[in-house]
Design a protein around this nucleic acid. Structure first.
Length: 749
DNA sequence: CAATTCGGGATCTGC
DNA sequence: TCCCGAATTG
């Protein structure tokens, strides 16, 4: 077995192989965009199991998004089926699982659900009724950030998150109130496991015994709390012998604003003593021309470990920088180039249009609708934030945990049952930290409210009694097997067996949600009833029991992404419209990065670390492109209803002369910054009006050939003026403008 | 409670 | 400019 080399190792390059077979000390893999990072991690898992005989059960691999976790799990299992026994999941879902197991030690209810920021605001408001309405979200953000930084209400350095004199107290009051609900917020899913491990040696020993290998993907996205958790989890300071391997790219860290800390990756070698570093720089995605641009830009950042991507691919097209008069021209330029290429057989799905802010998508949508260019906007549909879905989920959550004040308030008077705010407050105050429904039953209230509460409690009890504690066992697997799987996707439920979907169906019917929204749909033409059905369907595979209910709620609360969005948009021939942030981890054959203007990208006022983060975002955008890359920059842009004269993005200056082809009217600041074209001709004198109009450098549009630029203009021996035009499509043509004035149009005149 | 008006604010968004 | 939430009004 010594020389046995599994096939899957053959496809790796030298640096990838070194990363896969590395052992011993901790390892930081600095993996640039498109260098096969996921392949390395999944192969490493397979190699450890097959070749090093590591127990798959003792391997933990964490990612930041559910999508990434699913992909990693799938690919690891494809290489080595035993990887199904490994823990491959998101940080937060691991945390939720840990907290359910050690609920008592962590001080939460076993059947907690997870509060999002809206819910947090409700809790905060309950805790501090005097708080002005619009301040709540502000403070909630600070609390979230504090938890991301690993700070508790008694921490000394709360000013790190902008905490002022009263913040510590607000945070403390919030915490107190939150604990009374039994529930947790997202920050708790990291912070509480960290504190529990830190303060409880027995649990810590259990965990160190269990996990022998820990890998973290996208480590540049980790926050301080996650780094602290990793240190406790791995027992790095206690000689646990656990092997830790983190993978990331400091150049792609773009989530500082929500607590991600690049320094985690920069200082990994200090936190995990004796770390080895392996760089993956062989890039299999992009042409060398695109990678050159990426490097020009990112090398302007100071806080980085430093690496330069090396193209594995051969030469391609030079990226193009296009200066346009305004945003309408920008959308039109995109529409034109996509349409021209489409006529030549380039599918729409090759293209992605990237922008800094969602608001910028509007112009493209309008234009594409009109131009009949099919498109799909990525990442706007927030299924679980819809009113009707939140209502249904509130009922479900309250059944799971009757101490859930937020859920209780949300539904107790919806539809109206005469239980107004005053009655609600009374019930909540009396029932704090207890079963709110039971408390409500005992409460003395005005006649109207008391009738309403009776009705509410009746519905609740009926729903509650539908749920057995354990899965009804009709000859299937033993209940509790899900515990072994630790929340892995539940097995399909027999068709003739009741599933959780039946419960949710009842919820929608009994509570009047269906009735209410059916009426709404007719009036407003909405889809609410259908959305509720979709929610019901998504629960089909969960068993009808309390455990199934909690698993279902976790699956929703820990993946707010895309239910309701098309499963595989890539199968459809459509242009992708997407924010730069959303492109991380994705790739497209042809990419247009739009709105390259100061104030838009980078956003106004960004300096220092914030500016470096914007630059990394630009770097992420550039490195999404496989074959072709365009940048567009407008001289004028409407913002908030005002017309603004824009300066080109400072990032454009960082693209070195000769790294891009420039089209359009260069702003004054750019005169001479770039070669306008490749022509060397001495050019024509501009005394001739036609020659003046069709001069070298001008942008033109031709009915058949599309957009292009005049790269040379000369007079023939006969005195005829001839221009050579390089078209966007790559072709080059000569024209006699004298005879072409109607079909060859000079743009911007 | 529903319809209407008024005013403020406007990034990116994982789990 | 435009959208959302809060306040006002019938």
């Amino acid at each position: 077995m010594t020389d046995f080399s599994p096939q899957y190792l053959d496809v790796l390059n030298e640096e990838q192989l070194a990363a896969v077979t590395h052992e011993g000390k901790s390892l930081l893999i600095l993996a640039g965009a498109g260098t096969g990072k996921t392949r390395v991690v999944t192969t490493k898992i397979a190699w450890l199991i097959q070749h090093k005989h590591v127990d798959p059960y003792s391997i933990l691999a964490v990612t930041f998004t559910k999508k990434a976790a699913n992909e990693m799990k799938e690919r690891a299992i494809a290489l080595e089926p035993k990887a199904a026994w490994s823990q491959i999941r998101t940080f937060h879902s691991w945390g939720a699982n840990f907290l359910r197991r050690y609920a008592d030690e962590a001080g939460v209810s076993k059947n907690f659900t997870v509060y999002d920021e809206d819910d947090m605001a409700t809790v905060l408001f309950d805790a501090i009724p005097s708080l002005p309405k619009k301040e709540a979200p502000h403070i909630v953000k600070k609390i979230s950030l504090a938890k991301d930084y690993g700070l508790t209400p008694t921490s000394k350095n709360l000013e790190l998150v902008g905490g002022d004199g009263v913040f510590a107290e607000q945070y403390a009051l919030y915490q107190e109130r939150l604990r009374l609900t039994g529930n947790v917020d997202f920050g708790d899913l990291i912070l509480l496991p960290y504190l529990t491990l830190k303060n409880n040696e027995a649990i810590r020993r259990d965990i160190h015994f269990r996990y022998r290998v820990i890998m973290v993907d996208e480590y540049q996205d980790s926050n301080i709390a996650q780094s602290l958790l990793l240190q406790e989890l791995s027992g790095i300071n206690e000689n646990s012998g656990t092997y830790v391997c983190v993978v990331g790219d400091d150049d792609q860290s773009i989530y500082r604003f929500r607590g991600a800390e690049v320094r985690n990756i920069l200082e990994f070698k200090n936190q995990f003593a004796g770390t080895d570093l392996i760089r993956l720089v062989q890039n299999y995605r992009s042409t060398p021309e695109i990678l050159y641009c990426a490097d020009c830009v990112v090398s302007n950042n100071e806080g980085r470990l430093g690496k330069t991507l090396v193209a594995a691919r051969g030469k391609g097209k030079k990226p193009t920088l296009v200066f346009l008069p305004n945003q309408d021209d920008e959308t039109q330029f995109c529409a034109d180039i996509i349409e021209q290429q489409h006529k030549k057989g380039v599918p729409y799905s090759d293209w992605a249009i990237l922008y800094r802010t969602n608001a910028q998508s509007l112009g493209f949508e309008t234009n594409f609708l009109h131009s009949k260019i099919p498109y799909a906007i990525v990442g706007t549909l927030k299924f679980y934030e819809r009113e009707e879905i939140k209502d249904a989920l509130a009922w479900i959550s309250l059944v799971a945990n009757p101490r859930d004040v937020v859920a209780f308030r949300r539904i107790v008077n919806k539809p109206a049952r005469g239980v107004g705010p005053a009655s609600q407050d009374k019930i909540v105050e009396a029932g704090l930290g207890q079963n709110l429904v039971e408390s409500a039953k005992k409460m003395k209230l005005p006649k109207k409210a008391s009738e309403g509460i009776a009705e509410f409690c009746k519905i609740f009890d009926e729903l509650n009694s539908m749920l057995p504690d354990e899965e009804m066992n009709l000859g299937g697997e033993a209940a509790g097997s899900a515990e072994e799987n630790e929340g892995a996707a539940p097995k399909a439920v027999d068709a003739n067996k009741l599933s959780l979907a039946d419960f949710i169906k009842e919820v929608c019917e009994k509570t009047g949600l269906n009735e209410f929204h059916e009426a709404q749909d007719e009036i407003a033409g909405t889809q609410k009833l259908a959305n509720l059905e979709e929610l019901t369907n998504s629960a089909v595979q969960y068993p009808l029991c309390r455990k199934g209910l909690l698993d279902f709620l976790d699956s929703i609360n820990l993946d707010r992404s895309t239910l309701g969005e098309e499963e595989d948009g890539s199968l459809q021939d459509r242009v992708t419209l997407i924010t730069l942030h959303n492109t991380k981890g994705l790739e497209y054959k042809r990419v247009i990065i739009t709105g390259m203007e100061y104030g838009v990208f980078p956003r106004e006022g960004k300096v220092g670390d914030d500016l470096e983060e914007e630059r990394r975002l630009f770097y992420v955008g550039i490195t999404r492109a496989q074959n072709e890359l365009y940048f567009t920059s407008c001289a004028i842009r409407r913002l908030y209803g005002r017309t603004n004269y824009m300066q080109p993005s400072p990032f454009l200056y960082e693209l070195e002369k000769g790294s891009v082809r420039v089209l359009g009217q260069q702003p004054f600041a750019f005169q001479g910054a770039y070669d306008a074209g490749s022509g060397t001709s001495s050019s024509a004198t501009y005394s001739d009006p036609i020659a003046k109009k069709y001069r070298k450098g001008a942008m033109v549009y031709h009915d058949d050939w599309g957009h292009g630029q005049i790269v040379s203009g000369d007079f023939t021996a006969d005195g005829e003026y001839v221009v050579t035009v390089n078209f966007e499509t790559g072709g080059s043509k000569k024209f006699l403008p004298k005879y072409q004035s109607s079909s060859l149009l000079v743009e911007g005149t």
